[in-house]
Write a protein that binds this DNA or RNA. Structure first.
Length: 774
RNA sequence: UCCGGCGUCGUCCAAGGGCAGGACGCGGGACUUUGAAUCCCAGAAUCGUGGUUCGAAUCCACGCGCCGGAACCA
């Protein structure tokens, strides 16, 4: 049962229910093959493919490849890999925009013939100058008046390659003065003498996004074209292109509709293709699949699972406002998933020798150790235990020893007892230092199982390996690539925000069972984190491990809190910089904007609410209706104002008041009913909605439907009693101190009476009943 | 400045006239042979001001703030 609900799914469900597009649902994931997909693409993939899967539609994979200079076959493969890896399937539905150029050309010819497009020979600079700015209207290009025949001839010449790059473009003829810049005669095709990765040099002109995209959607029969917020201004053009090309008449084509949602942003990383490309080409990372990158290839190599990413995409939701998701959420779902599938093993990242003096050098004890903790069920078929050798020479974590430990320390310290995971409790009896004074070795003895107090003093458990049996491995530890929450914020160079310590490579020693680990294997190194045996670097005998994500470390967090200086700026708890959409400061309380003289006069004359006066003053038609209504009845002017300027206008949306089948007479009648207390305001609104739809007399409607207000105590009281009887949980909540539910109970009474109950009386009765019952 | 979009816990997402809810993070506690996991508890928000309404996060108005838009990119 897919519970994921968001405005996109709601919209689609509504369209489906309404039978729009013949009840069909077709979405598409439309990347341009000019870079590797990243976690932001995953959101789009999960949305488009997920919606289709859940709601019984299909989703196409389409390559939006209309720019020959940036696109490449290898990106096509990377995109396909990513979609498949995430667990989605486009079946036979793989399309290339570049396959549609011929049809797009034909549609363009139609546009020119109908006068909806023309060839413009302005230079790029002049073109720009002609377009105007956001503040001022543009003016027409000389080409705008070119005849269709002439434009057609030029357009054919463009296609034949008879003109150099930039000599001319085909433009839509829309509106050079439109406040929406996208509509100021946008270019549709431009000349580009460059080899396209699929088409070679067979085309010398290439269509632009705003032309290609709607047309491909329509041609493929896409019903819901989901894209990100920055295309909101393009929607008008999207619709224009579909309408004016008449593409929907073609077989299989549809009038698709665009809906925008917020793209994904993650803290401490960059998501734009440009910036990613810069990192890759500048050698700041090892490639598109560098495990520190938010690319799907990088995340995959680091050890992320498709399941975790899908879960993440589900949890972040889909909305219409820009947001920056905390990486902590990503890491949380990752750990959740990894915990279920990773056997626990021991490995020492930064080894320190520990000699167990109580164990003879020739002794070797093999212990049984479970792979899975008590609260994690072993996956079906997975081994549940392995053997672990204990010998005299051990290796422990350097960090687990402190000669002068802070309070609360539970690990190795002079004289202290700790438990060796799966083995025994040991006591540190000696610390050997090298000539530089650094700790070189620890001497310890096994604690007798009978020594209860020593056993009990061992508060901590540490991991270890037998030096002789340990297998070496190169382990890569990753930290976030950038040290700033929003790299490059404020226009600075993001490279300046690179975290110099984003990668640390250590020579680790692992328990012998890992000797046979194969690329792609994953496990948890206890107390360290989740690791993946690197697919690319683990040759025969040489094990390379990538730490996918560290375990949470409550001790480290606590230490950091005590001494923030001791930790690097990067390792400090993630704290997003203030900002984003919500930093909108509350200016000092301000007076409501003053009324215009006309509005003020109106307000004073009729004792109107200021907002109503303003609305009436601003709309002569509404004002006239107000005056007429006033004249037609005896209701109080203030109330008439509210109903005309408030309730009626709200129903109007963009229409003119004269289009409604409601005149001054009806309005006056309605307001009089409310004013006299014959009906409730709620009923009044309902009646207004009804007569706004189909006309008629309010009084007649009220009588026909029996909508008169119930203000008779004796009549309402039993209704209240019944509602309360049926709302046991709510009543209980009230009893336990939640006074707010009283409102909900009043609401229930209102619903039970179809809005006819005198609300004030209902509220009074509800309160009486509740108090009596208590 | 014009056009478009958007403002709910620190973060992400619900509630679309009637109980402001969930998740992550943070804090506290229980448990623990991973300072993990798990469990429990706490704290924490409707951008502002008016209006309509018995009742407003939700409707209306006026503001404020943030994002996007002037590529022959997508």
């Amino acid at each position: 049962m897919p519970d994921a609900t968001d405005f996109v799914r709601e919209l689609i469900r509504a369209d489906l229910a309404a039978g729009k597009h013949g009840g069909a649902l077709v979405t598409r994931f439309p990347p341009e093959p000019n870079g590797f997909p990243h976690i932001g693409h995953a959101k789009s993939i999960c949305l488009n493919f997920g919606v289709a899967r859940e709601l019984g539609g299909r989703c196409h994979l389409r390559f939006d490849d209309s720019n020959p200079t940036t696109e490449d076959e290898r990106y096509v493969r990377a995109l396909e890999d990513a979609v498949r890896w995430l667990g989605f399937d486009w079946g036979e539905r793989r399309y290339f925009a570049s396959d549609t150029f011929e049809r797009l050309f034909e549609l363009s010819v139609g546009l020119i013939e109908r006068g909806d497009a023309y060839v413009c020979t302005l230079t790029e600079d002049d073109f720009r100058a002609c377009r105007g700015t956001v503040g001022e209207a543009g003016h027409p290009s000389p080409g705008r008046s070119r005849s269709a025949e002439e434009s057609l001839r030029l357009f054919q010449e463009m296609r034949r390659g008879e003109h150099p790059d930039g000599a001319m473009v085909l433009r839509a003829r829309i509106d050079m003065a439109s406040p929406n810049m996208k509509l100021r005669d946008p270019p549709l095709w431009r000349i580009r003498h460059a080899a396209h990765y699929r088409l070679g040099t067979s085309w010398r002109i290439f269509p632009l996004y705003d032309f290609v995209h709607p047309l491909c959607d329509a041609l493929e029969g896409v019903t819901h074209s989901l894209c990100t917020l920055e295309f909101e201004n393009n929607r008008a053009l999207y619709d224009w292109v579909i309408e004016k090309t008449q593409v929907a008449r073609l077989p299989g084509a549809r009038r698709s509709e665009q809906t925008e949602f917020a793209r994904l942003e993650l803290g401490y990383t960059v998501m734009s293709k440009r910036k990613l490309l810069e990192l890759v080409e500048g050698g700041h990372v090892s490639g598109w699949d560098d495990p520190r990158l938010p690319t799907l290839a990088g995340m995959r190599r680091r050890g992320y699972t498709p399941e975790a990413i899908r879960e993440f995409c589900e949890r972040i939701g889909v909305a219409k406002h820009n947001s920056v998701v905390d990486v902590a959420l990503l890491e949380h779902v990752l750990r959740e998933d990894l915990s279920r599938r990773s056997p626990r093993v021991l490995g020492v990242l930064r080894p320190l020798r520990l000699t167990l003096e109580s164990l003879p050098a020739t002794d070797e004890r093999w212990l049984d150790a479970p792979y899975w903790p008590q609260d994690v069920a072993a996956p079906a078929g997975a081994p549940t235990t392995r053997r672990l050798p204990l010998s005299r020479e051990l290796l422990v974590e350097r960090e687990d020893f402190d000669a002068a430990p802070p309070p609360g320390w539970r690990r190795l310290a002079p004289g202290a007892c700790v438990r060796l995971r799966h083995a025994c409790v040991v006591r540190v009896v000696g610390v050997v230092r090298d000539e530089g004074g650094d700790v070189a070795e620890l001497r310890a003895v096994e604690v007798d199982e009978a020594d209860a107090s020593a056993l009990a003093s061992a508060k901590g458990t540490i991991h270890w390996v037998s030096a002789r049996h340990a297998v070496p491995a190169e382990v890569r530890l990753y930290d976030r690539l950038f040290s700033a929450p929003e790299p490059g914020a404020g226009g600075r160079d993001p490279l300046l925000d690179l975290n110099p310590r984003s990668l640390e490579v250590v020579s680790a020693r692992l328990e012998p069972s890992l000797g046979g680990a194969a690329p792609g294997d994953r496990f948890q190194l206890e107390r360290h984190g989740y690791f993946l045996v690197d697919e690319a670097c683990s040759g025969a005998g040489a094990l390379a491990l990538n730490r996918t994500v560290a375990l949470k470390d409550g001790w480290a967090r606590e230490q950091a809190r005590r001494d923030p200086e001791a930790r690097g700026p990067v390792a400090a708890p993630a704290r997003r910089a203030a900002g984003g959409a919500r930093s909108g400061g509350a200016p000092a309380a301000r007076e409501v904007a003053p009324l215009s003289p006309a509005a003020e006069a109106l307000r004073a004359e009729h004792d109107l609410a200021p907002d109503d006066a303003r609305a009436l003053a601003a709309d002569s038609e509404l004002h006239a209706l107000f005056s007429a209504t006033l004249a037609a009845g005896r209701a109080r002017a203030r109330l008439v104002g509210t109903w005309v300027a408030g309730e009626l206008r709200a129903r109007l949306a963009d229409r003119a008041a004269s289009t409604l089948p409601v005149g001054a007479t009806e309005l006056a009648e309605l307001v009089a009913l409310v004013d006299a207390g014959a009906i409730t305001a709620a009923t009044g609104r309902e009646v207004l909605a009804e007569i706004a739809r189909s006309g008629g007399s309010p009084r007649a409607l009220v009588e026909a439907r029996g909508l008169a207000k119930i203000s008779d105590r004796a009549r309402l009281d039993p209704i209240v009693a019944q509602v309360l009887g049926e709302s046991e949980p709510l009543v209980a909540r009230f009893r336990s101190g939640n006074a707010g539910v009283a409102g909900a109970l009043v609401g229930a009474v209102m619903r039970a009476t179809g809005g006819r109950a005198d609300a004030e009386l209902a509220a009074l009765l509800v309160r009486e009943h509740l108090e009596r019952g208590a």
